[in-house]
Design a protein around this nucleic acid. Structure first.
Lengths: 249, 249
DNA sequence: ATATTTTAATTGTCAGACATTTAACTTTAT
DNA sequence: ATAAAGTTAAATGTCTGACAATTAAAATAT
């Protein structure tokens, strides 16, 4: 390995890049130990601060972990689904909140993505996830449940649905897409009637999965998507009205 | 804002966490300037190196950018789709390569996810993306095309398919899922006959989109998924045979 | 043999210095 | 007065050297 750091970018960035590249192309294997900070200083001909800043960049992406002590050092991390989840969700959530993505667009994407797991979930229908879905439906029927809790339960219900597909890669992709919508969903206030309708659809979906009928599930999800958009529109109208009232007063 | 850094974790990690939280919950708005490194030192009562390591962590996640000079500093980044793409792909790619995810599982997830966009793409069918798909099909028919180029063109074709849905959020989620599969696809060698069949299916899919017939597209994708798995199995068998041969000699 | 202590390697943190970049300010020349 | 050139100040980027904390292994004592 030879390292040449030329460009105008910061050194720590270039060093992080070089190491990231080595990890990506397999030059550095999982659990392999990187050279110590001191050795990296020599190789890249930079100071320890610079090396450390580079390593912190990689640590922030879960690419490496560090251990102190005699046999310590920086090690290539085996990225787990558990590590990748929150990372993905953070990015997606911010993407939605910072880019004026309309609720309609986000909702369309969310349910389109979710529909991807329906054939598999219906075919495989695992008791565990079935039970979770039923339990969440039950929770959603409880009176006095806060809107936040209702939304959280909604997410849990849909997460169980995608986990039912029994494909960890699919779960990872879909569940993060769904969770990143949560802040948007939390902005909606659900009346008693709204909840009843949503729970009905959830039950329809769960029944569809239980009976292995993908079409029913698909239809249920479509209705849910449409209804969510309708509700969001109502909230928007209500807020606009309230705002005008306040402005008058 | 009051900051208390207690736990055993590294200070720079905790500081990064605190600032990330402030960005996520809206305390720090897009393009807002963070306190200078010196001020952060005072607030968190740590040295500048520690603050800098925290900032580098955030920069690695595209949460902030830094500028030098008199009016410089660290600013909250508006995360763009362009920023988020490669991040997502890096994570997903490593996740696949590091966790012994079978080709079958990954393939199932990839095509399941891709099917999510079919109804929208078929309904909206935009000329731009239609043209890209046709062009890529044409490229794939050229003899002498390397396997790598063939695979890259394959990815481009499918990317155009999901972009045809006209939903940026969906494109972001799906395209990154598809691209993260590329290394796995590159491991397959395509015979002339393989390519002919794949291109046929691509044409079927493109025609389905052009005529707005989602069912045809769906079926085409399913066939493609099955065929990909078949090819991967063949490659696996061939390699096993070759290995045994080598061992014998 | 086991328990304890020492040692050495490594990362984490601190302090202070200088380099570099950049915008704003000041001076000077026209 | 205006424009060009030079100066200044604030900020990040990098370097150096030191010490703290942690940890496994080696050395020592029981």
């Amino acid at each position: 390995m030879k390292y040449t750091l030329n460009q105008g970018r910061e050194l720590s960035s270039q060093i992080a890049e070089a190491i990231r590249e080595a990890i990506m192309n397999g030059s550095l294997l999982v659990d392999e130990r990187l050279p110590s900070e001191g050795e990296l200083c020599d190789r890249f001909e930079v100071s320890r601060s610079t090396v450390r800043e580079a390593l912190k960049r990689l640590a922030a992406q879960n690419l490496i972990r560090t251990q102190r002590g005699a046999t310590g050092g920086a090690f290539v991390n085996r990225i787990s689904f558990e590590d990748a989840y929150p990372q993905q969700i953070t990015t997606s959530t911010l993407l939605l909140s910072m880019n004026e993505v309309s609720f309609e667009t986000a909702c369309e994407a969310r349910f389109a993505v979710e529909r991807a797991c329906v054939p598999l979930s219906a075919a495989r229908c695992q008791p565990d996830h079935m039970a979770t879905m039923r339990a969440e439906i039950h929770r959603q029927e409880q009176i006095g449940l806060s809107d936040e809790s209702f939304c959280a339960s909604d997410v849990a219900f849909h997460k169980a649905l995608v986990e039912g597909a029994g494909n960890p890669v699919l779960t990872y992709q879909l569940a993060s897409a769904i969770e990143s919508m949560q802040p948007l969903m939390n902005m909606i206030t659900f009346s008693k009637r709204d909840r009843a309708k949503i729970v009905d659809l959830h039950r329809k979906i769960a029944d569809g999965i239980a009976s292995g009928n993908a079409d029913i599930v698909d239809k249920g999800l479509s209705e849910l998507a449409d209804y969510s958009v309708t509700l969001a529109d109502q909230v928007r109208l209500q807020r606009a009205a309230k705002k005008q009232e306040t402005a008058k007063a």
